[in-house]
Each structure stands twice: as C-alpha cells, then as structure tokens.
Design a protein around this nucleic acid. Structure first.
Length: 261
DNA sequence: AAGCGCGCCAACCGCAGGTCA
DNA sequence: TTGACCTGCGGTTGGCGCGCT
C-alpha cells in the first residue's frame, strides 16, 4: 500500500515511511515540537521535505490518532457534518477527536458514499406510492442528517471526551483541535529560577528531563551550520524559537489533573 | 497457480491564506 | 503595499493486497 520509496531531484525521499523515519520524526517532534516544518527534517536527520513530515506527523504519529474502526455514530456524525459543511474535511475532523481530515476524506470516498448509494438504490427499488424526488441521493442524505441533528448520547460522549469543552464555538473548537501545539513563552519555560509557578512545575514534570537530555537523533548534519546561540550546556542543538508540539495535550492533562491537587 | 481487476489508503501535488519584513 | 515564505487544505494518484476467474 502507498507509494514506493523514491528520491526526488533534490535528493529528498518520497513515498512510504520506514519505522526508522517514524521513530526519528516522533522523537524529534515530541521533544522539540514542530517549530518550522521546512527546517525540521534537517534537524531531525530526515531526508524528507517538511510537508511530508508534517503530513506524517498529523495523520499517523501524533498522539491519540485513531486508526480505522469507525463506529456507526462516527459515520452518522461525518454524514451530518458533511451535509452541513461540504468537503471541509479539516472542519469535520475537528469535530471527531482522534480522526484526521485525510482519513475522514478517504473514509467518505470509500465507505460512506458507497453506503449512501446503496441506501439510495434500495430506496428507489422499494415500491412506493409517493413520487421519487429528482435527487433521491440528496434526499436520503438530508433525511439521514435530520435524524442526527441532535447528537445521540454516544456522540455527546465522544465530544465530551474531547480535550476541549463542546461549548466552544466551532471555529475555536476547530482551531484548538487542529493546532496541536502550544507556544510557551520564555517565562513559562524558565524553571531553574526557583520561582516556578504550579503550572510551570507541572510542565517541567511533564516535559521531563528536556533540558538535561541531549537529543542526539541527527548525527549527519553539519553542526557548523548552526550558531553557537543554539548550543546549550548539554551540547545539543535546538532552534532559536521553540514550539512544543503536544503542548495542548499537556495543557489538557494539566487541567485534568488540576482538581486532584 | 497465475493473471487480472478493483478497493482501499498513504502520500503527493498544487493552491490559497496568513504572517512578516 | 508587496513579495517571500510557511502552513494547511482538498483533490488526486500510486501501488499494495485481496478476491475473483
């Protein structure tokens, strides 16, 4: 499945990802975040383009990404959202925690469309008194959607299990779910000054030994390319401005843990 | 067993929009 | 204001896997 690995004219690898590449990307993003997708492959020791890395991370390596096993509730929700939003796969994906736009798009084309066609055909061949409307397909779609205008309890559970409150506006919800990283300011990152707040302590704990463990994933790049400002005591490289991917996950974890404290 | 066709899905491509200097 | 750069989105494609003949 997928594309055979090959190299483009710039010598960058294309096609299916190996587990070794996955490991490199996962390790790098979990540690440093995706501060710049274009530059990231170089730092992570991958001969891929940034876009490819981004896609791989978003669709497969990101934590909490669900693979396959769509429930009927999810299917109905996709149907309803597609009716409302059209081919806005990313917006649809934002309402389905753990699902990616690419996967939903594929699922739509391979399963749901087929299911609708089948239902449509069955509807047409059933003996009926009333007139069959011009677009039976659309009608079925609408009927299906109307049945699920109010989310059934199971769907509520799905939404409530999402990291964010369902009370958020769709745009907030969407942007929050699609941007799976948080930007941490310098003050939030300073942990050795002894004045750490609870949140920064929590963050420190969750991040673990980020500041003390050198990341040695990439042994191939030319270290002279990087300024000395990128060097820290541990002798490893990091970009000038850091985004912590999964910062949001971390944040939600912190929020979840908060009542226990 | 071999050949063929098709379904499925991972990944690519091109474009649009946002940001920044 | 503009152009370069980056990210994200949606459409499309390549090719593996599997069922059918």
């Amino acid at each position: 499945m997928g594309r055979t690995p090959s190299f483009d004219k710039n010598g960058r690898k294309k096609g299916l990802w190996s587990t070794e590449e996955d490991d490199k990307l996962r390790a790098y993003v979990q540690r440093y975040g995706h501060w710049n997708w274009r530059e990231l492959p170089k730092y992570a020791g991958l001969s891929r383009c940034g876009k490819s890395c981004r896609l791989r991370w978003m669709n497969y390596l990101r934590p909490n990404v669900k693979r396959g096993g769509y429930t009927e509730e999810e299917e109905d929700l996709i149907l309803k959202l597609h009716h409302q939003l059209g081919n806005k796969w990313s917006a649809i994906a934002a309402r389905l925690p753990g699902r990616t736009d690419n996967e939903i798009k594929n699922y739509w084309h391979t399963h749901i469309k087929k299911r609708l066609m089948k239902e449509n055909q069955e509807a047409i061949f059933e003996p009926k008194e009333q007139e069959i409307e011009a677009s039976q397909f659309e009608t079925n779609l609408k009927q299906r959607s109307n049945q699920i205008t109010e989310f059934p309890p199971k769907n509520r559970a799905i939404l409530e299990s999402a990291p964010l409150s369902p009370e958020l506006s769709s745009s907030e919800f969407s942007s929050s779910l699609t941007s799976d990283y948080a930007v941490l300011s310098d003050t939030e990152l300073v942990v050795e000054d002894g004045n750490s707040t609870n949140s920064s302590e929590l963050l420190t704990e969750a991040i673990g030994n980020f500041w003390t463990e050198p990341f040695l994933e990439d042994k191939s790049f030319n270290k002279n390319e990087f300024s000395s400002s990128n060097m820290v005591e541990g002798g490893f490289f990091y970009p000038d401005s850091l985004y912590f991917d999964d910062g949001m996950d971390l944040f939600y974890q912190v929020l979840q843990d908060f009542p226990k404290m």
